[in-house]
Amino acid sequence: MASDGDKGKSSLPNNNAKASAIREDGAFWSIFAYLISGLLFWGGMGALADHFLNTSFLILIGLLIGLSAGLGLIWMRFIRQ
């Protein structure tokens, strides 16, 4: 998604500010999607592991891993550049 940011060279010069504002609208939803998928995937893995190993703490670890993975991806895609 970050690639959306830097490729749009508009033929109209004064369009760039507007374009980046519009992309920021969309960035919010991309960030949301990363968080959700991180939590869902790793939380789901944790829940599955819990189910088969008869434990109850792995879902928490899974959710934490998912959260950090999502936040990490957001940082790399949107902030680092």
Binding site: D4, K7, G8, S10, I22, R23
Partner: peptide
Amino acid sequence: LGEAVIGP
């Protein structure tokens, strides 16, 4: 939605 987002 077209030009400003997608580019050339």
